[in-house]
Design a protein around this nucleic acid. Structure first.
Lengths: 184, 184
DNA sequence: GCACAAGTAGAACAATCGCTCTACATCGTC
DNA sequence: GACGATGTAGAGCGATTGTTCTACTTGTGC
């Protein structure tokens, strides 16, 4: 079952969600059509199984054994995401890709939101930026989405943004004209 | 022709790139199948025509008549992108969606890169952040990608990041540990 | 040694796909 | 008012799709 999920995930990651046929997915999963349909009774389910597998692997890769210090954790976070991009996908976020390929599927949307909110929660906790969760998430999204174009420079850029965000966080109100940290 | 392109664009924007059949696209374009195939001899071409149309409309909406001052331009930029997201898509970048749906299509990839690099060029020019083009682009990507989840708060978050980026830009080296502004 | 669950390989199904083609209507121009 | 260009409506084509089903093989527990 885990092998099936892994195969499905890598197939969708490599070729997108629209292109691969069920027979392609069968090859990727390394089982027969019958067994594949036993665990994933429809193509939609294959997509969801792949995404759930990806979710677990992503959280493991990015958040396990992060440095304790907030500053070090922030740097390590971007480093790990950059490494993930390099190793795993080379194009943007797989969850966004899945929803983009099928915008009417509400189950996919729910999966995307659950994934993002868990990432946001963990990232904010590890870096001490709970008051700037949205901005932190945006840097992460920016890194993920711009990585295919900028490669390693995207990681550096995200570190810069993270440092600027932290520096603006500490002293007091971020930007008095629009809001105060305690309100967001 | 412009009406066809507009129809195609809105069809792909609303329903993604995988789902709509050519007959759906014909309905969206408001012409017969024959005329549609005259201007777009294959479904792939329909996708490209839609993206080119979107490219022009996006640049018009976001960059025309921006305020002259760098700071005002930066704020206006995020405001306009937020407004664009609200009006046009409600989910992420259409170019990324197109490439994600069909990762092997190199023509699509080229279109994506041309779009992004022109956005980066114009944004950096208008805001005076040419030395931080990558970071600026990442904030834009972060705003675009996180807008569906955070709505108006995404715009505010991007403004915060933009302000932090500008503040870090002016005084001198950004982060001596990793790089200096003059090198990136 | 045999029954049974669980696997494989792949034929078969209706539906749908992208695309082509035919037949007919509507123009502006001489 | 005839003409050619350009449009519409939609039937038809072969290929491919997601899904189901049949027939056969394998491993495990009693």
């Amino acid at each position: 079952m885990a092998r099936i999920a892994a195969g499905l995930e890598s197939a969708f990651a490599r070729r997108g969600f629209a292109v691969p046929s069920v027979e392609d997915l069968r090859d990727a999963a390394g089982v027969s059509l019958r067994t594949l349909y036993k665990y994933a009774p429809s193509r939609d389910r294959m997509v969801r199984i792949a995404l759930e597998h990806r979710h677990r692997r992503y959280l493991d890769h990015v958040f396990s054994d992060l440095p304790m210090g907030h500053e070090a954790a922030l740097d390590a976070l971007f480093e790990r995401i950059g490494l993930w991009m390099e190793r795993e996908t080379s194009h943007g976020c797989l969850f966004h890709a899945a929803v983009a390929a099928n915008p009417d599927d509400n189950e996919l949307k729910a999966l995307l939101e659950r994934h993002k909110s868990e990432v946001a929660e963990r990232a904010a906790g590890a870096t001490g930026l709970s008051g700037r969760k949205i901005e932190l998430m945006q840097v992460i999204e920016g890194l993920t989405q711009s990585w295919p174009l900028y490669r390693e420079r995207a990681t550096t850029g995200a570190r810069h943004l993270g440092a600027a965000l932290r520096r603006a966080e500490v002293p007091g109100p971020f930007d008095a004209r629009t809001s105060s940290p305690s309100l967001t």
